[in-house]
Write a protein that binds this DNA or RNA. Structure first.
Lengths: 181, 181
DNA sequence: ACGCTTCTATGACAGTCGTCATGGACGGGG
DNA sequence: CCCCGTCCATGACGACTGTCATAGAAGCGT
């Protein structure tokens, strides 16, 4: 159910996804939603966000290569695949949630930040393993994350995966240069 | 009125901004909306998007420096300023619209893409003026745009402008290297 | 004074939203 | 057997949404 919620948020954003859509997509009884999520919609999308963050972190940890540029390519690969396969219907859940539930002090701001942090922490850890010195690892992680998110956005708007390939190719040398620096 | 619509979209996203909110924010009579925008909400946010794209393109053209890294810093500067000044309430309208109106074949997909294209075309033109050879200019523009958009996202989620400073500093050398290459 | 166009005001409409309340099914311990 | 906690089902509520229809105000050339 949180999975269905995550997918719908990725497609349409938080506000545009209704509870009724989620339970229907999950083939779950509507009465169950209120039983398992007494916190209502906020709780549901919060869990979906955190789940997404963990998923992304796990994917980062799975990288078995030896270079930062390879890690970046590893991060971009599933997006390239899925955007093309699903015809650019789904974007990044963190971006979707941030776009329409980040202003003010919504109940979602915490989970959004937490999901992003888990993702970035995983990247920082991976960069450390690859030989990026402490201090540079965090900077490099925000650079990678920024560029990746932006490339996802461009690819989705253009309905063309090339932005992802472009940033992976052009950013690679810069990322690898941080290892020996 | 399209200005007010743009600001509200930047804050809350497309779906979450109601017509009534926009007209109230613009201090305009509600009856006027339907007179000037017979196309309804889609027309209003479309015009807001195109206006935003033109605004961004104009800002790009205003750059008077001589290096790509300087151009990138010039692009990031207003975001750094405004995010901090407005307490991270407003993000990028293109991102907001893409996040919840980009799936399927909404009436907004065209304007979203058009706004982004105007922005990118302006960057490509500016890079050409700075001595970036044709062929590399487009790649560099998507890299700059991706990284900028992503950094805006990170800054907003974190409520901290440092991601913008980080990417400007770290991406600078790579951008300038394209001039003599 | 009149008619006409342009603009404004306001109420109503059908629809959807998130949430809640009530009531029925199921199943294991007293 | 019965009771009771967990789970499912469904209808209703109030508060929205975007859109439309009708009616009034203001300006203006004739």
């Amino acid at each position: 159910m949180v999975y269905s919620a995550a997918q719908l948020v990725r497609e349409r954003g938080v506000t545009a996804t209704g509870i009724r859509d989620v339970v229907e997509r999950a083939a779950a009884p509507r009465g169950s939603f209120q039983h398992y999520f007494p916190g209502g919609k906020d709780q549901l999308v919060s869990e979906a966000l955190l789940w997404s963050g963990d998923f992304a972190a796990r994917w980062v940890a799975e990288y078995a290569g030896t270079t930062p540029s390879g890690l970046f390519a590893h991060l971009a690969a599933p997006w390239e695949r899925e955007l093309a396969a699903r015809e650019f219907q789904r974007g990044c859940p963190v971006m979707a949630a941030a776009a329409d539930a980040c202003a003010g002090d919504s109940a979602l701001t915490g989970p959004i930040r937490a999901a992003l942090d888990r993702w970035e922490d995983a990247i920082v850890a991976a960069l450390g393993r690859l030989g990026v010195p402490a201090g540079a690892d965090r900077r490099l992680a925000t650079l990678m994350l920024s560029t990746l998110e932006g490339a996802i956005l461009l690819a989705r708007v253009r309905r063309d995966v090339r932005p992802l390939g472009t940033v992976v190719a052009d950013l690679g040398p810069l990322l690898d240069a941080a290892v020996r620096a």
